[in-house]
């Protein structure tokens, strides 16, 4: 389940993204999936399902 509450610390958006860029092999799958979702997201923006938190 996705947590919506942040810790008391600001994680920084850029600081989160960089973690998949420096993650090496462990990050390949996640990176591909992230960008795939972004590409498909462009075409499916209209029927995006409400996300439950």
């Amino acid at each position: 389940m996705e947590t919506e509450v942040f810790a008391y610390l600001d994680p920084g958006s850029g600081s989160m993204i960089i973690q998949i860029l420096v993650g090496g092999l462990a990050a390949v799958g996640v990176t591909m999936k992230l960008y795939w979702r972004r590409i498909t997201g462009i075409f499916s923006r209209g029927k995006k399902v409400e996300e439950k938190s």
Binding site: P11, I17, Q19, I20, G23, G29
Partner: peptide, 18 residues
């Protein structure tokens, strides 16, 4: 960003690698 990373399957192995 957090939601996208979660949906893309961010996991603890990635944290470990970092």
């Amino acid at each position: 960003v957090k939601r996208e990373l979660h949906q893309a399957g961010f996991n603890k192995e990635l944290i470990r690698a970092n």
